[in-house]
């Protein structure tokens, strides 16, 4: 068991006379993508901002890699934690490349290495470095800007990346693309990600584990599966139900794995068409028609086999809810 990345111990935060967060206990493991979900005013953003000390705790302690937060010099702490904002907040006086270079430069990385990384990251998120590196943020669409916002946060390969409702201001198509991108980058870099959203659907698609917040309290922490199977209270089940009304063909294959619809892959399955776990049900339908089953890969490992029968079972259950 590795040291947990972030641990909240009886943490409270009071603004004036009101508790935004009260007696919160939470452990976030290293390399985990942890999603905090809740309505506005539930204390999820406050909880996030206490991690990089944009807000200080009123009571209790937060530990980072086993040490209290205030034992780490503030600048060191923040340089180890990427940050992505809902407002994106690219610096309008700098080009795209300058925005990305900012934190690596503050960490005194070698200029050649920084340059290489900027090119690689831009390519990875589908923005051609030759045209985008020298553009100003104002020349980019909202979705493009937030791509840059994400790679700015990851550029110096931080231990932790904090993401505060990063996609809620974007159009649905950009949102979906960026969710996939987040999963891809997380799998490659293995940073701990704490992701805040009010959208349960987004939480279910992204989270290794999900924490549901209500009125400053953490009402349930669990895997998407656990949240789906055993909601802790009415509020959680309502939130979950609201997430289900979406188009079934847009559900990620990852969800099928989480919910237990994938079967183990045998040697005989090596010839089956392969799909990534970040693709949707809609994208595998044609392949299923011809082969009867497909392999689902998690970037680094084989996740499992999806058969037509299992998919049908999921779709029947989904519709019946």
């Amino acid at each position: 068991m590795t040291t947990p990345s972030i641990q909240f111990k009886q943490v409270s935060k009071k603004f004036a006379d009101n508790y935004a967060v009260e007696k919160l206990d939470l452990t976030i493991e290293a390399s985990e993508l942890f999603v905090l979900v809740g309505a506005s005013g539930s204390g999820k953003t406050t909880t996030l901002k206490m991690i990089n000390r944009l807000e200080d705790v009123t009571d209790g302690t937060i530990e980072y890699q086993g040490k209290p937060l205030d034992a780490v010099p503030l600048r060191d702490l923040r340089l180890q934690m990427g940050y992505v904002l809902q407002q994106i907040a690219l610096f309008p006086n700098m080009t795209v490349a300058e925005n990305i270079r900012l934190i690596p430069e503050m960490k005194h990385m070698a200029p050649a290495k920084i340059k290489q990384r900027v090119t690689d990251l831009l390519t990875e998120v589908g923005l051609d470095p030759a045209t985008y590196a020298t553009r100003m943020p104002s020349d980019l669409s909202g979705g493009e800007q937030q791509r840059v916002g994400i790679i700015r946060a990851f550029a110096a390969q931080p231990q932790v990346v904090l993401m505060d409702e990063p996609f809620s201001a974007l159009d649905p198509i950009s949102r979906e693309q960026l969710q996939k991108l987040t999963l891809k980058i997380h799998q490659r870099l293995k940073s701990t990600i704490v992701f805040v959203t009010h959208d349960m659907n987004e939480a279910l698609q992204l989270g290794d584990r999900i924490g549901v917040m209500q009125n400053g309290h953490l009402v349930q922490v669990g895997t998407p599966d656990e949240i789906a199977q055993q909601p802790a209270n009415d509020f959680v089940s309502k939130m979950f139900a609201s997430a289900q009304t979406n188009d079934i063909y847009g559900v990620y294959l990852n969800r099928l794995k989480v919910l237990g619809y994938l079967e183990p892959v045998t040697a005989a399955d090596q010839t089956l068409p392969a799909f990534d776990s970040h693709q949707t049900i809609g994208e595998v339908l044609t392949a299923l028609q011809t082969s009867g089953a497909v392999r689902i890969n998690n970037e680094l490992a084989v996740a499992g086999k999806l058969t037509s029968a299992q998919l049908l079972a999921f779709m029947i259950k989904f519709q019946s809810k």
């Binding site: 944009l54 060191d76 340089l79 940050y83 904002l85 907040a89 610096f91």
Partner: peptide
């Protein structure tokens, strides 16, 4: 813009 200030602070 306060969000730019927040970003700059958060970046250390």
């Amino acid at each position: 813009d306060p969000s730019l200030e927040e970003a700059a602070t958060a970046f250390g």
